Amino acid sequence: MSSWADTGLFLREFVRDPLHTAAVAPSSPALAAAMTAPLLASGPHPVIVELGPGTGSFTRAIQQRIGGRGRHVAVELHPGWAQLLQERHPDVDVVRGDVRELAAILADRGVTRVDAVVSGLPWVAYTPAPGGRPLHAVITDVLAPTGVFTQFAYTWSRWAPPARRQLGDLRAHFGDVVISPTVWRNMPPAVVYEARRPR
């Protein structure tokens, strides 16, 4: 499928459900490279978890970074995208499921700790349900002490109150949060949050 066709898929989903679709178009190779750069230091047999992979922009980059080493589990709630992703990347363990059930999803696969979590989820996904746990807590539960979490945000939205709240929550759950320079070769331009030292 062409990148134009993928863009059409994203636009349709964004119009249908803008609160639960992170992007209006697939992420660029430049953003995918920035999101997955920390994986180069993830060890000889890394376990990588991808949240909300969509049509697979980050999936491709993760596969290139790990080069057939370790395991790559991708959790996607949208059934059509989960099926598309499995067809495109048969070596990836694609799970159609809710990321809030991440610990159980990984336990079913015999995984107790992961080396990296790469998230393509929208910020709204991090808002806990009434009585529920913050998604960052779900992520730190499974992340190894030396693990890394990456999340992107569009530059035009990162100063909005929801994004600022989520950044505060991210800093509450990780001891070290670094914000990348703007990735201009993405539409819209974006930054990457790289979080380490899970609390």
Rank of each mutant, 00 (worst) to 15 (best):
V183I: 14
D115R: 06
L102M: 10
L40D: 15
A125T: 05
V73E: 14
A5S: 14
Q64K: 13
G43Y: 07
G54L: 09
V49E: 10
P38V: 15
R100S: 04
P79E: 01
R196P: 00
V114Q: 12
L31S: 05
T155D: 09
V124D: 08
A107M: 01
H173E: 15
H78W: 07
L39N: 02
P53R: 03
L102A: 06
P145H: 09
S119V: 10
R60C: 06
G120V: 00
T55R: 11
Q83M: 05
T112F: 06
A153D: 13
S157Q: 14
V111H: 08
F174W: 09
M1H: 10
G68Y: 09
A107G: 04
Y126R: 00
D93E: 15
R164V: 11
H136R: 09
Q166M: 13
T155L: 11
R165C: 04
H89N: 14
P122S: 01
S119L: 11
S119E: 10
R185C: 03
R165S: 07
Y126L: 03
A137R: 00
G132I: 01
A34E: 13
A33D: 15
P53V: 10
R65D: 12
T140S: 04
H173L: 11
G52I: 11
P38S: 14
W184H: 00
A104E: 15
P161Y: 05
A22W: 13
R96I: 02
G80T: 01
A153S: 08
D108Y: 09
D115T: 04
A137S: 03
V118N: 10
S57N: 09
F58Y: 14
T150R: 11
F152Q: 07
V138N: 12
T36R: 13
A104L: 07
I179D: 13
F10K: 13
V117L: 08
D169Y: 04
R65V: 10
F174N: 04
R113D: 02
V75T: 07
R158E: 14
S2T: 06
P79A: 02
R60M: 11
V114M: 05
R69Q: 12
A129Y: 00
F10L: 13
R65T: 12
E76G: 03
T127D: 07
S3F: 01
D176S: 08
A163G: 08
A82L: 07
V118A: 07
P162F: 01
I48H: 08
P162I: 00
E101P: 00
L84F: 05
V183C: 04
G168N: 06
W4C: 05
V111Q: 12
A22F: 11
L11H: 05
P161E: 08
Q83W: 01
L143F: 06
D93G: 10
